[in-house]
Amino acid sequence: MTLLRMENVQASYGQTQALFGVDLQVGEGEVLALMGRNGMGKSSTVKVMCRLLKHASGQVQFAGMDLGGMPPHVAARAGLGLVPEGRRCFPNLTVYENLIAAARAGVWSFAAVTELFPRLAERRDQMASSLSGGEQQMLAIGRALMTNPRLLILDEATEGLAPVVRQEIWAALARLKAETGLALIVVDKSLAELSRVSDRAVILERGKSVWTGTMDVLNAEVADRYLGV
């Protein structure tokens, strides 16, 4: 069953149009890789999904609901969880406080999040501002999970992290997919890792979705043409 569907979505920042026609869908339990070079509209697409940017035309539906006109907090309560680019944890709150500030009832609890990321349990009473980049990303994922989402969107999932920490994040995402069946949309630049975790990919080029398909057919030619790898 389709969980999120975007059809011919166009969106602008004031006079500057960023999205010129994005089509994508993600089903229950599916992992979708959202790819594209820098400035091609990945983050704008994520913002439209989470209602941080209103689309000017097209359709955005989540779990059968039309998201047009829906404010971000209502979309979040409906089950859209976001791990934002740059992590953006609440710096003056501890790890534990960051997690419980946004908690809603469901399978994800402090215990469940620290089982996924044991390092967060070790840092429980430490301020978010004093965590390493990798730990902050774990916290940002944990914070989104604590809202018990149906779809988790990770914008630049491993950007700026050390290779060893990236592996931890990818391992956690693989566990989420295998053990919880949570639907994921992952924005990242690592084609190799995305290929391992994702079921399908959507590639954006100049604000339009130009390629959609399963990871096994995303061949070298497509990657070279759209992603420059």
Binding site: C50, L52, P71, P72, H73, V74, A76, R77, G81, L82, P84, R88, F90, P91, N92, L93, E97, N98, I100, A101, A102, A103, R104, R143, A144, M146, T147
Partner: peptide
């Protein structure tokens, strides 16, 4: 201040947009 309400209020001061994306107003 230590309750989820107080923490969310504190968080909203630090980053209102982020608080909205976790379902709080």
């Amino acid at each position: 201040a230590a309750s989820p309400f107080g923490l969310a209020l504190n968080a909203a001061r630090q980053n209102a947009e982020r608080v909205e994306t976790v379902g709080l107003t």
